[in-house]
Design a protein around this nucleic acid. Structure first.
Lengths: 249, 249
DNA sequence: TGTACATCAGTGAACGCGCGTTCACTGATGTAC
DNA sequence: TGTACATCAGTGAACGCGCGTTCACTGATGTAC
């Protein structure tokens, strides 16, 4: 099972590569192997391994390549990990762009954002698992890379929030604070989605609307958790001194 | 450096243990070694290793004991990990009990809770780091143990919240939802404290009030992030249908 | 208090294994003429 | 179109290392009489 399938299919010949790869250019083969290495690492993390526990040899094995070939693509597993962080956040940014561009009223905007989040986690489960795993991992290089990306997303969200009339007068710190609450909540939502058995993430399902009961529960609560802090916005006094006039519960 | 200090101190004699341990009972020695093993694991996680990357041999080595002695205490590293989860949550529950028992008005309660949180993270840095690390780790056994404990804490908080007048009529789901927002926020706060260089956590410091500038910033923003969702409480309509009447930003 | 035996914390040698990394290599693809 | 050479993706043997686990053991502590 660790043996490359191409080798098996081509086993009638003394040279399998000539049979099945002869029509690829070198550049295509290079990209193919690179993706196989990244995919093997993602698959192993998705199967429950922590990234630090992956071995270069097992990744190469699953990619159908000899361990030494690994070094043609990455100097180390850390470097491969950084490539995965980059790949993951390209996906994530595409998702957030999609969520923003609607220009919907707030109520529908939250609903739509949660739906988009759920859909993208389902469609890119392996990348989200990787990021969630690495975000709190013992690998300082990857952990800081992920945290820096998330800090960047949070700042971008704060900038977007500043455009809403009620938020126009807020201090920068308070906008960051609000964006932080929303991002923290979304991270928690993603984590709870990832804890579901993978079946629950399939697009179609026997439970009516096409999502599992568990996923519907998570979505409903997620919407509330995002709506609650936003509901407080009109009552929050954002001033340089950082104090608030209204009293909470 | 991996050699037990007791061995060095006693090296004048042919039998170091007789010299330095003769006054301990067997039960005391047993407890001593057990704590040395747990402490060695905590120290290595705190030093940046992920728990899954720890080896039984390195933990035994740092505890000043031969690898085979490990098995007198734990059947596997997983079992040691579960003991650490339990130890950590004993500490955490003590902290939360302290935060609750004041009976202060909400404004001061938030301030006090954040202060207690900051203090306990500083005083139990290794345990918090361990829990934060394991919460998203690849080790399913430990991850689920931690998540179950956090779910329990969240439910306990929801029960406490139900005693406040404004929350008495809320549905169970909405109380859990609110508790979830607060717990998620506190987890994020703890993670940001743990990202600070360890010096910033010392009790006394040259920056006036005894805490570093960075820690003061985190505390101030943490208080806001907890205050914001609570500020929305009076305006949230909690009904069985789960809809809300007020409009947010 | 003294003796004989049981308990048990900790020892140390040995095992087979998967690991990361090195090295010299093969042979298909690409390019210059 | 054909030839000669360069490039380079992938190979396979070899290395030393730390790992988890086994086993038979030592000798101090604890206990029964």
């Amino acid at each position: 099972m660790s043996v490359n399938r191409r080798t098996h299919r081509g086993s009638r010949s003394h040279n399998s590569r000539a049979e099945t790869q002869q029509r690829r250019t070198q550049a295509e083969r290079r990209e193919h192997t690179r993706q196989a290495l990244l995919g093997a690492a993602l698959a192993q993390v998705d199967a429950g391994e922590s990234f630090e526990a992956l071995s270069l040899r097992s990744v190469a094995r699953e990619a159908g390549v000899v361990p030494t070939a690994f070094y043609r693509y990455f100097a180390s597993m850390d470097e491969l990990g950084l490539a995965l962080v980059e790949e993951s956040f390209v996906t994530l940014r595409a998702m957030l762009r999609e969520a923003r561009e609607g220009g919907l009223p707030p109520e529908r905007l939250i609903r739509r954002s949660v739906a988009i989040l759920v859909e993208h986690v389902g469609g890119n489960r392996r990348h989200f698992t990787f990021v969630a795993r690495v975000r709190s991992s013992g690998n300082a290089v990857l952990r800081h890379a992920v945290r820096a990306e998330i800090r960047l997303l949070t700042s971008e969200l704060a900038t977007d929030l500043a455009r809403f009339p009620l938020l126009r007068e807020w201090t920068t710190e308070d906008l960051q604070m609000l964006a932080g609450v929303l991002v923290n909540t979304m991270i928690a939502i993603v984590e709870s989605i990832l804890e579901l058995p993978p079946n629950d993430l399939g697009a179609a399902d026997r439970n009516g609307a096409g999502v599992s009961r568990a996923l519907a529960d998570i979505s409903r609560i997620a919407e509330k958790q995002l709506r609650l802090p936003l509901l407080a916005v009109p009552y929050w006094r954002s001033t340089r001194s950082g104090t608030v006039s209204a009293s909470d519960d």
